Amino acid sequence: MTTSKLKYTVPGMSEADAERVVDLLQSRLNAANDLHLTLKHVHWNVVGPHFIAVHEMLDPQVDAVRGFADDLAERIATLGGSPVGTPGRLVEARTWDEYSIGRATTQEHLGALDLVYHGVISEYRDGITELEELDPVTQDMFIAQTEQLELFHWFIRAHLEDKSGSLSTAGADTERGAAKKAASKRTSRKKG
């Protein structure tokens, strides 16, 4: 996935290892750029009775994830790579679908975001495992970012959880499916 051969890397790391680490970093850079834009999209398009709570919960997440992107890009440069942050290259390289929910209720967006966070965190954890031998410095970065992403995911899931700990999105495998399940669970709670 690297676009060009590295001219140098950090002391003690082979060029082949550095190229693989740069690939992992670029993958997470793409995910962080996509996630912070998605979170801002939700911030602008969320409606309903819990609008202000969700609207205000998302801005710190946007800021943190935007910071992750900067850290990832700077690590790529430190390893002798060239980070790519252009929209076209992001769309070309991503392995996930475009966020599919527009103007919708808080529960619908939170349901969809549950799946978004699940995917992002899963990829980070895969990277953490691979980086164990390749580069503990980058692994530390991934671990720290994963800790924050898991916290943000918990914030999202707290809105989707019932008192028994069950998630309204359980079993959903698409954003639209998760949004629908979250919205219908909320509606059924109101009726009961």
Rank of each mutant, 00 (worst) to 15 (best):
L131Y: 09
D23N: 03
G81C: 11
W96F: 10
I143Q: 01
G67V: 03
A73I: 02
T146S: 10
R28Y: 08
P11C: 05
L24A: 01
G102D: 15
F142I: 09
G48Y: 09
T95S: 15
Q107E: 15
P11E: 12
I128L: 13
M13W: 00
F68Q: 13
H41I: 04
A69C: 09
E98M: 13
I121T: 12
G80C: 11
F142G: 05
P87M: 13
N45F: 09
V84E: 15
V84Q: 15
E108C: 06
A53V: 01
E19G: 03
H50A: 06
T146A: 03
E123M: 06
T138R: 02
S82F: 15
V120I: 14
S122D: 13
F152R: 02
A32L: 09
T106P: 00
G80D: 09
M57C: 05
G102S: 13
L37A: 10
A144K: 10
L37S: 08
L29S: 09
H55T: 10
T78L: 10
Y124V: 08
D23I: 01
T86N: 14
T146C: 03
L29I: 02
Y99S: 14
P83R: 04
L115D: 04
A93E: 15
S122Q: 13
V22E: 01
V65P: 00
V10A: 10
L110I: 12
S27K: 07
L131H: 05
L72A: 08
L29F: 14
M57L: 14
A69T: 02
E92S: 13
E92P: 03
D23Y: 06
E56K: 09
W44A: 02
T38W: 04
D135K: 09
F68D: 14
A53Y: 13
L25A: 06
F68L: 11
R103E: 13
Y8K: 03
D34Y: 02
P49C: 06
Q107D: 14
R20H: 10
A77D: 13
L39G: 05
